[in-house]
Design a protein around this nucleic acid. Sequence first.
RNA 1: GUGGGCGUAGCUCAGCUGGUAGAGCUCCUGGUUGUGGUCCAGGCGGUCGCGGGUUCGAGUCCCGUCGCUCACCCCA
Length: 422
Amino acid sequence: MSERPQAPRGTFDVLPDQAALRLAVERCARGALEAAGYQRIETPVFEDTDVFRRTVGESTDIVQKEMYTFEDAGGRSLTLRPEVTAPIVRAYIEHGMHKLPQPVKLWYLGPCFRYERAQAGRYRQFWQLGAEALGSDDPAVDAESILLLATILDELGVRGTRLRIASLGAPASRARYRELLQGHLRAHEDRLAAEVRARIDLNPLRAFDSDHPGTREVMASAPLLLDHLDAADAEHFAQVRELLDAAELPYEIDPTLVRGLDYYTRTVFELTSDALGAQSGVGGGGRYDGLAEQLGGAHVPGMGWAAGIERILLAAEERPVPAPICDLYVAVTGNVPGAGGPAAVAAFALAAEARRAGVPTQIELAGRSLKGQLKQAARLGARYVAIVADEGIELKDMQSAQQESVDSAGAVVAHVLRGRHA
RNA sequence: GUGGGCGUAGCUCAGCUGGUAGAGCUCCUGGUUGUGGUCCAGGCGGUCGCGGGUUCGAGUCCCGUCGCUCACCCCA
């Protein structure tokens, strides 16, 4: 068995049943997003490593240990995208989208790559659905964005969702708060977990995520970022909440909500589902008003989110996969695989004609016996089976089991078309 | 990277305290020479993840290794 080829660890094949489910998710998301004026964008699956290194943050796990980075034959350092927001901002800058009416609203669906140990809902290649609105810092952008994700998850039947929101403030107030928090952590350093202590300089906010008992005690009395926002940021956050209230979208304010990427400013949010395992996050995002500048562009405020397709599928209630339609199955008598013969040729021509007429048609391709062909037709849910023999064609209605001879391929197609609209 | 569980036919699994592999499902064929979704029979299909060890003999015991999976970490 070890000889059998296998997909690399943390990756998976999307088999037909799953592909149908994914298509349903894509259609639903696309409908909601495009109705709200978001347009699809696709960026390369790899980028210059700097695109991520400069935006996601040196201190993050993503940059420190999860990136698939490689050098191409030209000596360039490239990285398989671990997320799509930075590439989209890169594209916005590269294509001068600032000259378009703002905000520019974009959505995407595609694979991302992170080198992590796989577990339920976490893979090395996973698909993200996302939406980004660039060029406006209006709180309505934030609220609309959050509402869109919540709506999509709801329409998809994702169970047990919870929305948490917070504000990280602007860089200046965040920096001031950061020092405050670092002071608090240093004052109680001896009670903190080792990893937390090691991150006091790099990312003190992470301390809120710790479940280390000593750390939790220290954090219980820690200053909260929400209490230290600038007036403008506090007002922005208040407006976002007011709009969410107006849309009647329930949420919880979580002052310890920390997103795993460093580029977030002001609004951040996360949607979780209790139908998932340990990886309970279905999607999340926030505002990133400094991201474009980090990439060397002008100041461009932005807001967006990403959701994991695999997690959506895991958390969504089971839905029946619609069976593919087959209106006509073309069988051949005296079937000998590869032997051809006039009946086989006539059958092929009949199938071609039916398809040209728009009839979903399948034809015997495996040299089965007539009994086997009927069985196959039944499996496919075919409405009609045309049995082509050297002597002529018979058309069988699979539901009524009635059968009559038909004198031409055209008559078969006409009959099937009539039956379909009946 | 660390820890727990698991690794027997395409799929789901059985195989007791060691004696050289089974079932169900699926697929194909046959059951009147050309007819389906039920039934019956047959067939295709496995170096029991891999390597080593103990033993007269291991799927069954021991060691190692790889893989899958769940969890930690972190996130989609």
